[in-house]
Computed example of a mutant assay.
Amino acid sequence: MKSSISNEEFYAGLQHLPKPQYPFPDFIHPDFQQQRQEYYDWIDREYTFHSQEAREKHKKHNLTDIAARGCPFLKTIDELRPLANYAANGAMMDDYLDRCTQEEMNEINSCIMALLTGEDLNEPTDNGLFHQFWILRQNALNCEMPEHLYKKFVRSIRNVLQGYADEKVYYRSNKIPSFAVFSLIRNETSGVHPFCWYVAMQKNYRNLPNEVLEHPHILRLHMLCSLMIGIHNDIISLPKELSREEDTMNLVKVLQQEHNISIHDAYMMALDIHDNYLNEFLVLHKNLPQFGKWQEMAYDYVQDLGIMVAGVYAWHTNDTTRYVNGGYVEGEYISNEKSK
Score class of each variant (00 low, 15 high):
Met249Pro: 01
His285Thr: 10
His274Gln: 05
Ile273Arg: 01
Asn250Thr: 09
Ala266Arg: 01
Gln257Ala: 13
His259Gly: 02
Tyr299Arg: 13
Ile273Cys: 00
Ile235Asp: 00
Leu251Lys: 00
Tyr267Cys: 03
His232Phe: 09
Leu271His: 04
Asp304Tyr: 10
Gly292Tyr: 08
Tyr267Asp: 05
Glu280Pro: 00
Leu284Asp: 06
Lys286Arg: 14
Met297Lys: 12
Asn287Ile: 09
Ile236Cys: 06
Lys240Thr: 12
Asp265Ala: 10
Thr248Phe: 07
Leu288Asp: 12
Glu245Ser: 11
Ala270Glu: 02
Glu245Gln: 11
His259Leu: 15
Glu246Val: 14
Asn287Phe: 10
Leu242Gln: 13
His259Trp: 12
Glu296Pro: 00
Met249Thr: 08
Asn250Phe: 09
Asp304Thr: 08
Gln295Ala: 12
Pro289Thr: 05
His285Trp: 11
Val252Gln: 02
Gln257Arg: 14
Met269Leu: 13
Phe291Trp: 11
Gln256Ile: 03
Trp294Arg: 03
Leu242Lys: 04
Glu258Lys: 12
Asp275Trp: 04
Lys286Val: 02
Lys293Ser: 12
Asn233Ala: 05
Phe281Val: 07
Asn260Cys: 11
Glu258Asp: 14
Lys253Cys: 08
Val302Pro: 05
Met268Gln: 12
Ser237Asn: 08
Tyr277Leu: 04
Asn250Ala: 08
Asp275Pro: 00
Ile261Ala: 06
Asp247Ser: 15
Ile235Tyr: 00
Gln256Tyr: 01
Ala270Val: 03
Leu284Thr: 04
Gln295Trp: 13
Glu296Val: 13
Asp247Met: 10
Leu284Lys: 10
Val254Pro: 00
Pro239Gln: 08
Asp300Met: 06
Asp275Ala: 07
Ala270His: 01
Asp265Val: 01
Asp234Trp: 02
Leu238Arg: 00
Asn260Gln: 15
Leu255Met: 13
Glu258Phe: 05
Gln303Tyr: 15
Met269Ile: 00
Val252Ile: 15
Ala266Thr: 05
Tyr277Met: 09
Asn287Ala: 11
Asn287Val: 08
Met249Gly: 03
Gly292Ala: 03
Met297Cys: 10
Tyr299Met: 14
His232Arg: 04
Tyr277Glu: 05
Leu251Gln: 00
Asp272Thr: 13
Lys286Ala: 15
Leu282Cys: 10
Leu278Asn: 06
Gln256Asp: 01
Gln303Met: 13
His232Gln: 10
Phe291Leu: 08
Val283Cys: 03
Gly292Thr: 06
Glu241Thr: 08
Leu238Cys: 06
Ile261Asp: 02
Asn250Val: 05
Tyr299His: 14
Val252Leu: 04
Asn260Leu: 13
Asp275Gly: 03
His264Met: 06
His285Tyr: 11
Ala298Lys: 02
Leu271Phe: 03
Glu296Asn: 11
Ala270Lys: 01
Glu245Gly: 07
Trp294Gly: 00
Gln303Gly: 07
Asp304Pro: 07
Glu246Asn: 12
